[in-house]
Design a protein around this nucleic acid. Structure first.
Length: 324
DNA sequence: AAAGATAACAACCGCGTCGAT
DNA sequence: TATCGACGCGGTTGTTATCTT
């Protein structure tokens, strides 16, 4: 039995989203909140299928999304969570709340798989712990992708911006939508209660030390997002690093079985809940920011339209906190 | 400078699961 | 309990940018 495609209806648009479509979608979600995707195309007039709308929101427009520039810390997390969980990208993404499963999956397929392969080959030849360092960037990961093209540059937040009004690089706009919308969650009454803070909140507001305290010790034992030199993670030497990563894997396994809800990662319902104590991870399960208050739409739309053509005006960005 | 190869990533497709009825 | 619709997930494809020859 072959299921008919969800978007077989004539007139359904496919392909890249335009800024205008994004505005419509964001506006609608501002008003109604995410969910009931079936109704979105009907109510917004978007010529997109519900799936496409949901995907666009969850992978691109949703507040709190961090794009590109995976840190060595994140790389390490992904590598070992993948080793532990397999290709359960959603489960892996739950440990990296600012990343989407799609983003992680893409990054794995395009970067990490190759790096690991290379590493394994290297290990075969050298049988050396230091080989691991080949899969970790020597310095800032940003260096791996060089933008010497005059049309592109990284801004102070390491996000890609374009100076070319004709550029098709729309990702920067969408990233900034995400960052813009992030402001909503910060003022959410939900966060007034300290016990109800989300993992996203913690990672956004706090430094690495706080994150390390918040995340179960066995997970963060080795991975603290502080790599800024050639020394490896937190100044560890290379063999320490490898040892640490291997024990990290071991610790995750232990944790999974200790909690013993289920050691079977293939069970979908327990992907996120089965490995770690519910209480400990309450904040992690709350990673999807809740939209509770809405910013002035006209401002958002104005900004969005401008941003689709040009770089964000710093003055506008400076205005954001007072507006939200 | 042009053409082909490769990399990167946004989006689509199809299947599985879950909840409502 | 069975059925159906909605949604989420993972694999895959398509498009664009960048690199290499």
């Amino acid at each position: 039995m072959v299921r008919p495609p969800c978007c077989e209806k004539a007139g359904i648009k496919k392909g890249p989203w335009t800024p205008e479509e994004d505005i419509i979608l964001v506006s609608y979600i501002q008003e109604h909140g995410p969910g009931n995707w079936r109704a979105v195309p009907t109510n917004t007039g978007l010529l997109r299928c519900s799936k496409s709308c949901r995907l666009r929101w969850t992978n691109y427009l949703r507040p709190g999304i961090k794009r590109g520039n995976f840190t060595p810390h994140e790389e390490g997390m992904i590598i070992h969570l993948q080793a532990l969980l397999g290709n359960k990208w959603a489960a892996i993404a739950s440990y990296l709340p600012q990343r989407t499963d799609n983003d992680i999956k893409n990054y794995w397929n395009t970067h990490l798989k190759k790096k690991l392969k290379k590493f394994q080959v290297g290990s075969d030849h050298h049988n050396s712990t230091s080989s691991y360092h080949h899969i970790m960037p020597k310095n800032d990961y940003n260096n791996e992708r060089i933008f010497d093209n005059s049309k592109h540059q990284y801004n102070s937040n390491s996000s890609l911006v374009t100076n070319d009004p004709n550029s098709s690089v729309y990702a920067s706009s969408a990233e900034n939508i995400s960052r813009l919308l992030e402001g909503w969650t910060r003022k959410s009454p939900f966060q007034a209660n300290n016990h109800e803070r989300t993992y996203h909140d913690i990672t956004t507001e706090c430094d690495a030390t706080t994150i390390a305290a918040a995340v179960p010790a066995s997970i963060n034992q080795c991975y603290k997002p502080e790599i800024d030199n050639d020394e490896g993670i937190n100044g560890m030497n290379q063999s320490d690093e490898l040892h640490c990563i291997l024990s990290y894997n071991h610790n995750l396994n232990s944790l999974a079985c200790e909690n013993s809800v289920s050691c079977d990662s293939s069970q979908k319902g327990s992907e996120n809940s089965g490995f770690i104590d519910q209480e400990k991870l309450h904040f992690m399960q709350e990673e999807k920011p809740k939209i509770e208050t809405n910013p002035p739409l006209s401002f958002l739309e104005k900004w969005l339209l401008e941003e689709s053509c040009t770089q964000v005006d710093q003055e506008v960005m400076d205005e954001l906190p007072s507006i939200f």
